[in-house]
Nucleic acid binder design. Structure first.
Length: 848
RNA sequence: GCCGGUGUGGUGGAAUUGGCAGACACCUGGGACUUAAAAUCCCAUAUCCGCAAGGAUGUACGGGUUCGACCCCCGUCACCGGCACCA
């Protein structure tokens, strides 16, 4: 009987669903609990793409293996369904976002089930379900009540197309991450979340979690703690300009100051008329606001700025009056939004000083500041031109200066973080309503918790308003309400939450998805917390992952969750890329021949491709994109080869942590592997369930290797090892026991085929809940070892010796090899090196 | 510009983390089976010289450490990802 994957896959998917084979049991203390997590998908209109199955299959394999090892596994799935793409799609197609979401979730569910994942389908969460977002709103209210949510007017990123504010994190290369339109800066009153209050703990607690190192490094760098000093500069207007600096030792070299164009003092000076060149200043401010971050960066080479005429600052150590500039290379959002410029020892300041012909003073010895700024990493470098610091090392000068500043009351030591508070409001419809109302008399008031969820109202038009207000603002029935405090008239907040909100805590809901009195019950939280293993993309390292840790720490502080950290372990997968159809090496032989004939020579044909498709054509491997037509749809792969082949290929494709290209022709290799297994086991093998003498060693080795590789996410070599075992079975026919072991090992990778053959063989139970096979280390070992024999480090022969053979005997055996003799005869042996069971290296030199 | 990462046959990738480079696959070539094709099975497959035995070269490039380097160190280049000119 042929391997009919369509029939088999449908059959077992139905079986697992009906029997709830993968249901997790809360509170089962007889088994070890295991809670692996994948990042739940955003149900986009395009459906599942071939990138999704990589992390999902990986964690499914881990989940299935642990289940077979007897653990109580909670492997859940859900949908992160609020967000702009759905809303934009709904607007474009005159549908309601709710209907679009419903349709997309149904499609995703169908596609995910076709892949045979061992999800607990009774625990699905949907962030747009009022029963879910009730608790998202509840968490926000707790944050508000604890002073972590506040309203602030600040320069925010304004997308000119979406007419909405974006977090800095959502602006990619100066354009809106979602729509690609230019982003400008604009002042707007926004709800903010005080993530900076948790900055230190978000750094410190990384020590207690098992995250891959590059995730930790990236989070630390993002939070960006630096220690330095805050210094007060008096202005001639009487105001005080605060700056943060990590190099207060260079204060004697501060010859001017730069404020960000958005700085508060600039505003007040303009209003009060202190500034004598207001037009020029306003023009520069407007130009800076129109610029995206990308443009600010591109203009890097030419420093621009405007001197504020009519006001100067006074350097607190020298007493010198120094000019004040505004320039867009100083950002409002970092530090105090103002810097003291030390052109001798900061390259940006140096370039600015050159452009504006400002004095450059050397205060640290060692460089040539006429050529470039001297940025010494040497903390023993000596201070010069610096009054009481002269002759000191940088190392000593810093604390000395801090002490001086503190004594004079014009500065203090300070820790600064790059991390900024989180802009939390969006002027959009498809998000969680913010459960606050504004009363003229009482100010902002939280609604009563009994009124949660605050439902997203049905509106006629959820399209953006031109004035930048949320579509909800047009719903006067909904907006006008009463103040929870005084009962007077009040207005609801019409902004909604960003998409990140719902994904901050979704893993908690999986633990107890139906709970109506808490985000999850205490028993469930105690039993399942924390997530044991969270795998996701590197692109979420500084946004989702950090936000989620922040919310969790807050929930811990108010006694809602039992652990400080949400995720005990974090791993990451590489992207699935596509082959560039316009690259020479990816063309078929016929196409190449045709092009060569057309263009005259291979060289000309290659040039033609680059000419026609641009530089893109030079890269053989590129991101999948609709425009290139290299997008692979999992549905079509499943139809042609089956889900088991897709699962196997996506895991065999390469190192899980690295990006890998989808190669259509390589999929066949995995199908062939499954066909070969099918042919071995499609008829019942008779006999006992012990391993055959011929295959025993290979079976034990494979069990060991596959088990270890799954835990270390080396799925490609696990599959290679199973392929080797199957090749061995083609040499020595497998026993019933051999096949049983193979099917058990195969089960996490290709679960449908494993189930079907398990049934055909008549083994007990089903493959998905079978016992994970155990290996005997002694039986994986060889009696004899082949040693590499080198002469002067060059491989000359191999020699077979008993395992763990004595060094002396190994050398003797090596020296006896004719091919070794050829290189040692007449030579003097200087030294021999033996690496047990591996190699012998004989060092010789010409005899005297 | 800064930060992080990567670089191995025609292709994807292995390499017990300093010990036989190229496992396992894909592609390609050859053979068997077939009227034929597909499928399947078997063999070959880093490069160069050689009929062969064998030899030489080879992990982006240039150095270094070591008996021995894809692996460690210094420098260079290319590509990928991230970025908030972070003071």
């Amino acid at each position: 009987m042929a391997y009919d994957f369509s029939r088999i896959e449908k059959k077992w998917q139905n079986y697992w669903l009906e029997h709830k084979t993968f249901a997790a049991v809360t509170g089962d203390d007889t088994r070890k609990k295991f809670f692996p997590l994948i990042e739940f998908p955003y149900p986009s209109g395009e459906g599942l793409h071939v990138g999704h199955p990589r992390p999902y299959t990986a964690m499914d394999i881990v989940a299935r293996k642990r289940r077979m090892e007897g653990e109580n596994v909670l492997f859940p799935i859900g949908f992160d369904a609020f967000g702009l793409p759905t809303e934009n799609y709904a607007i474009a197609n005159h549908m309601h976002p709710r209907d679009v979401t419903k349709r997309n979730i149904e499609r995703f569910t169908r596609q995910l089930q076709m892949l045979g994942y061992s999800f607990d389908w009774d625990r699905v969460v949907d962030t747009t379900d009022p029963k879910y977002y009730k608790w998202t709103q509840w968490i926000f209210l707790q944050m508000y009540k604890h002073g972590l949510a506040y309203k602030a007017s600040m320069p925010v990123n304004w997308c000119t197309s979406c007419k909405c504010v974006l977090a800095n994190e959502e602006v990619v290369e100066g354009v809106c991450e979602r729509c690609g339109a230019p982003v400008v800066r604009k002042e707007k009153s926004q709800w903010m979340l005080r993530i900076t209050a948790y900055a230190q703990r978000l750094i410190d607690d990384l020590d207690d979690v098992d995250y891959i190192e590059r995730v930790k490094i990236q989070q630390r760098n993002w939070i960006g703690r630096s220690t330095g000093a805050e210094v007060d500069f008096k202005a001639t207007s009487g105001d005080v300009i605060k700056v943060f600096t990590t190099r207060c030792d260079t204060l004697f070299g501060a010859t001017y100051m730069v404020l960000s164009p958005e700085h508060e003092l600039v505003k007040s000076w303009l209003e009060s008329g202190v500034i004598r060149n207001p037009d020029e200043v306003r023009r520069y401010q407007a130009a800076a606001a129109a610029k995206s971050d990308m443009e600010r960066t591109e203009l890097n080479k030419d420093k621009t700025g405007v001197a504020l005429e009519g006001v100067d600052a006074i350097n607190p150590v020298t007493g010198t009056e120094i000019p004040i500039f505004i320039s867009d290379y100083v950002l409002a959002s970092y530090g105090t939004g103002a810097i003291m410029a030390v052109p001798g020892h900061d390259q940006r300041d140096w370039e600015f000083a050159k452009a504006f012909d400002l004095p450059i003073i050397e205060v640290v010895k060692g460089g040539d500041i006429t050529k470039e700024a001297w940025i010494s990493k040497d903390e023993n470098a000596i201070m010069v031109n610096s009054g009481f610091l002269n002759g000191m090392s940088v190392k000593d000068a810093i604390p000395t200066m801090v002490r001086w500043l503190e004594e004079k009351g014009v500065g203090r030591s300070q820790v600064n973080y790059k991390l900024r508070d989180w802009v939390f409001s969006r002027q959009r419809y498809w998000g969680e309503p913010i459960p606050l109302v504004y009363c003229e008399k009482c100010g902002w008031q939280p609604i009563d918790e009994s009124e949660l969820p605050l439902l997203l109202p049905d509106v006629e038009s959820y399209e953006t308003t031109d004035n930048g207000e949320s579509p909800l603002s047009k719903m006067t029935d909904w907006v006008n309400t009463t103040c929870p405090k005084c009962g007077g008239p009040a207005r609801r907040e019409t902004d909604t939450m960003p998409q990140w909100a719902g994904s901050c805590w979704y893993f908690l809901r999986y633990m107890d998805p139906e709970n109506d009195t808490a985000l999850a019950g205490k028993d469930a939280l105690d039993y399942w917390s924390p997530v044991d293993w969270y795998n996701g993309g590197m692109e979420h390292t500084t946004l989702h992952l950090l936000y989620s840790r922040f919310w969790h720490k807050f929930l811990y502080d108010i006694g809602v969750v039992p652990t400080k950290e949400p995720y005990a372990k974090r791993t990451s997968h590489g992207m699935i890329l596509g082959l560039n159809p316009h690259n020479w090496s990816n063309l078929s032989d016929e196409e190449r021949a045709r092009l060569i004939a057309e263009q005259g020579s291979e060289e000309k044909a290659r040039e033609y491709l680059v000419h026609k498709y641009g530089e893109m054509a030079e890269h053989p491997i590129v991101k999948m994109s609709k425009s290139l037509g290299n997008v692979v749809n999992p549905d079509s792969v499943i139809k042609e080869f089956g889900a088991d082949t897709l699962r196997l290929y996506i895991m065999f494709i390469g190192d899980f942590e690295k990006a890998a290209p989808w190669n259509p022709s390589a999929v066949k290799g995995c199908k062939r592997f499954l066909d070969r297994i099918w042919a071995l086991a499609e008829k019942r093998i008779e006999g006992g369930e012990e391993y055959s003498a011929a295959n025993e060693k290979e079976v034990h080795r494979t069990i060991k290797k596959v088990g270890e590789d799954i835990e270390s996410m080396k799925f490609n070599t696990a599959i290679a090892c199973m392929m080797t075992l199957v090749n061995k079975f083609y040499e020595s026919a497998p026993s019933r026991g051999d096949i049983k072991a193979l099917l058990a090992l195969l089960s996490p990778f290709a679960p449908h085929m494993a189930e079907e053959l398990w049934e055909i063989q008549g083994f007990e139970g089903i493959a998905s809940t079978a016992r994970w096979p155990v290996y005997d280390l002694a039986k994986t070992l060889d009696d004899e070892k082949e040693l590499a024999v080198q002469v002067n480090g060059k491989l000359r022969a191999t020699v077979v010796v008993p395992a763990d053979c004595e060094d002396g005997a190994a050398v003797e055996a090596a020296m006896a090899e004719p091919r070794v003799k050829k290189f040692t005869d007449g030579m003097q042996v200087v030294k021999t090196i033996v690496v047990k069971n591996k190699l012998v290296n004989i060092i010789v030199k010409p005899a005297k």
